[in-house]
Every structure is written in C-alpha cells, then in structure tokens.
Design a protein around this nucleic acid. Structure first.
Lengths: 208, 208
DNA sequence: GTCTATATAGGGATAGAC
DNA sequence: GTCTATCCCTATATAGAC
C-alpha cells in the first residue's frame, strides 16, 4: 500500500475514532510513523485529505443509490439488506455526518456535493415507497408517502448523531447499525400490510 | 446591561450566526469593543462562557418541558403552540444543536445535562401522545406511539441541521421554525382522526 | 519520497498597570 | 472593571537537505 493511500486510510480511521476537529495532520503523520513534511508532499492541505476521502464516500454511496437490477425492493428482506448497505457506508464515513454542518461550512465543494447526495437519498426513498405502495405492501396516500420519505432520509442522516447524543459513543458498531436500520423501518412499519409486518418482526428479532 | 451579561448575549449571537468553532474570544471582545483581558476578567475560559449560555438554555427548555396547567394538549392549536415554544428555544440556542456532538465531546457537564434534556423531550412527547390516544384523537397501538415519540424527538433535535444541510442557511428564521413544526406534526398526522387532521391543514396553510 | 527544521499564524489565556 | 502587552501553545504548512 502506497503512502498516499495509507494517509487516506489512517486519516479516515482517526477522523471516525476521534472526530475530525480533534485530529491534526501531525497526529495522522505520527500514527503512520512518517514525518509531517512527508504527508504534505502527498496532500497540499488537511482539507485536501478530507476532500479525497469524501470522493471515496461519494463513489460508494452513489453506487448504493443506483438501482440494482438484482434487487426488486419488494420483500422486507430486500429492504433490510438495502438499508444495511446504506448504513454501512454511512458508518464507514461517519465523521462526515458527525460534523456535517461545520464541514459543509468550511469546504464549499463538499457542501454542494453532499447536498446532491442527500437529495438523491430522499428521492430513492420516495421511489422505493411508491413502488411498495403500487404492489400493495404499503397503504398510504401520496402525501403521507412523501412525508415518510422525508422522515426516512432525515433519520438515516442523523441517526448516528442521535444515537451518540442519547446513549454512549462506545458501544458495538454493528449493534448501532442494526439499531439505525430498525429505527428507519419503524417509520414505515405502521403502514405495511400484516404479512410484511410479521416478516419485519422476525428480522428485527434476528438482528437486535 | 452589565458587561458580564453583554458578553453572554454577544457570544450567543455570534455563536448562532457564525458557528461556535468559528468564533474566538477575541472576536467576541472585538464585537463588544472591549479588550480580551476584560473578557477574561469576567469568565475564566471560552468553555465557561458556553457553559453559562447552556445553563440559560437549560432553564428555558425545562420551563417549556414542565407541564403547563393552562394547556391541555388536546386541540391541534395547543399542539402547534406548544411545538412553537420548543422550536423557539431550540432556535434561540441553535449553535448548541449545530455542533452538538463536538460540544458534548469537549464539555463533559454539557454532555450529561444535554442527555437529560433529550430524555425529557422524548418522555414529554410520549406523554402527550399517550394522552391524545386516550381522548381518541390519535389512533395507534402502544408500540407505534413509542416509535412516534422517538421520531418526534429526533426530528425536533436535528430538524435545523437537516434544513441547513438541504436548503440554504440564510432563509427566513421564522419560516424555518414553522417548517420544523410542520415536519414534526406530519409524523403524527396520519394517525389523527379526521377532524383534527382538518384542523391541522388549516393551521399549516396559515403558517407556511 | 522522505526527513529535519522551521516559518507563520492564530487562539486561549495571564500579568500588571491604571 | 478595564486596558495593554504578551506568553504559550498548537496547528497548518513550507524549505531545503538527503
């Protein structure tokens, strides 16, 4: 693994663990046993590093948000799986979400790109729910569906923060993921038909 | 107004406008036309200032969260009014919400106290909804009600951030408030009886 | 590509005069 | 209570040798 890539990997790990504002370029270099000068040979600035990490994130999340031919988004298993992919990416780049407003404020590009991603997330949620309504899994009028999609997007975006704010930061990462997925599904659950609701209960029992 | 109080007022305004991490003690002193030394005569540290502001916030939010004898929380007008009070306090101290995780991380006391407030908010939401269910305004089983209360608390906490993330930061403060209130009410709306739903539509039309 | 050494800047905070 | 002057520290970033 080249130094250039190791910097990204190390920075990402430290940002997630300590929070981006608490991680200096010196920390990153120190953690890797290279000199700060070396780090700055590869990246012009700290924001440049963040920007490169963001591009990785953007690529991954866009992949997940691009409709997958192998998923038909009809069964609750598919939904769970799909949400799991989303939350996995969020979790991998969680430092972005933890200091979202500040980062958007500081890095103009990041603001514009992140906004676009959020819009795509909302839209995807809406599409899936419309589809569920069409096949009769979900009973709700258009207005309610729109509201649910917003709710889902907001919850997916801030669930990790909420969870940190309420509970403690240091409990099992996988548990926290499942918890978030469960939380999102609970939004939609009351509008599902009985069969799917039952499926859901079994899935929750399995993962929580 | 004494200097000690002016510092708090100025700091709060700047924190809200610029974001707490972007406001230095020098900025605050400069804005007030006093010397940094003077500022440090009144408060030992920047975190001390933040802490004092937080105490004001805590007092106000606890007042709102304490059941008011003059409100019976039955009509949608009451609900709107009540939510408006909550969102008003949140908006007045919005810098706390914008950098919540980082602040909780840095100031241990703030973490503990804020957590308690969040718990109270959830609990209050739950109580109100149970009450609405009892008097027949709200049709939902206990599990759904619990889920709705969580949703409401999460939305109230992060709506401002979500709104900043999606739209722009610089649009009418009052509009943003109403929008948040509306967002919270939309969560509950599908479970209301027809009469209350109709009331709600009229209220929304009036404020949005 | 990597190191050492260092420049630069800014923020938090204090000392001591008035 | 308030000011001026200043200290200390840390963070980002660069220069130049190897």
């Amino acid at each position: 693994m080249k130094t250039k890539d190791r910097i990204i990997a190390t920075a990402l790990r430290l940002f997630n663990e300590e929070g981006e504002p608490n991680v200096t370029t010196n920390h990153i270099a120190d953690e890797m046993d290279i000199s700060p000068g070396n780090l700055y040979y590869h990246y012009r600035s700290k924001d440049d590093i963040i920007w490169q990490i963001f591009l990785d994130y953007e690529k991954k999340i866009n992949q997940v948000l691009t409709p997958d031919e192998n998923l038909n988004y009809t069964s609750m298993e598919d939904m769970w799986f799909y949400l799991h992919m989303i939350f996995e990416v969020i979790s991998e780049y969680r430092f972005l979400y933890r200091n979202l407003i500040q980062l958007m404020n500081r890095i103009e590009f990041l603001k514009r790109h992140f906004r676009r991603i959020l819009a795509r997330k909302s839209q995807t949620a809406l599409n899936i729910m419309k589809h569920l309504a069409e096949i009769g899994s979900l009973n709700a009028d258009d207005e309610t569906i729109a509201s649910l999609a917003d709710q889902v997007a907001l919850t997916a975006t801030f669930w990790l923060n909420y969870s940190i704010a309420i509970y403690d930061d240091n409990f099992d990462e996988e548990k926290k993921l499942s918890h978030g997925i469960f939380q999102v599904i609970r939004i939609v659950a009351p509008f599902l038909n009985e069969e799917d609701k039952e499926n859901l209960n079994q899935l929750s029992a399995q993962y929580l």
